[in-house]
Design a protein around this nucleic acid. Structure first.
Length: 128
DNA sequence: CTTCTAACA
DNA sequence: TGTTAGCA
């Protein structure tokens, strides 16, 4: 792991900072956290600590919600990505090309990520 | 003063 | 989600 990756994974940001960086309320951040959408760390005094990667994830969750997805749907997105990571690891050990893995990845994101006809401006409603 | 949990409008 | 109480 590079030093850059290491620093981004360092959980050192307190709630207040994450609030500023994401423009979300503490309530919302804690909620997404409790739902398991982000893996935060805790200080000895039980205070949450986030990494820059965590902030990116939170921003991602924020967008998904803006697109109309609920917590359960978002959880499925990350759960599937986790499964894909697992498969990719086992595939590389078996010498399998990950090109095919990416094919499924794209396909699943389109489904789970919800670029549904309803809120995609590219698909105007009313004349379908 | 900042954050945490729990609970209610 | 917002908000508030009561701790740490």
């Amino acid at each position: 792991m590079s030093e850059k990756e290491f620093r981004r994974s360092m959980a050192v940001l307190p709630m207040g900072t994450v609030m500023l960086l994401t423009s979300l309320t503490a309530r919302q951040i804690r909620y997404y956290d409790d739902c398991g959408l982000v893996v935060s760390k805790r200080t000895d005094s039980n205070r949450r600590l986030y990494s820059l990667d965590n902030v990116d994830r939170i921003l991602e969750v924020k967008d998904y919600i803006k697109e109309g997805m609920n917590i359960e749907q978002i959880k499925r997105v990350y759960e599937k990505q986790k499964h894909r990571r697992d498969n990719k690891l086992s595939n590389s050990r078996k010498g399998v090309s990950d090109t095919r893995v990416r094919e499924y990845l794209h396909d699943d994101i389109m489904k789970a990520g919800g670029f549904n006809v309803n809120n995609n401006p590219q698909f105007k409603q009313g004349h379908l």
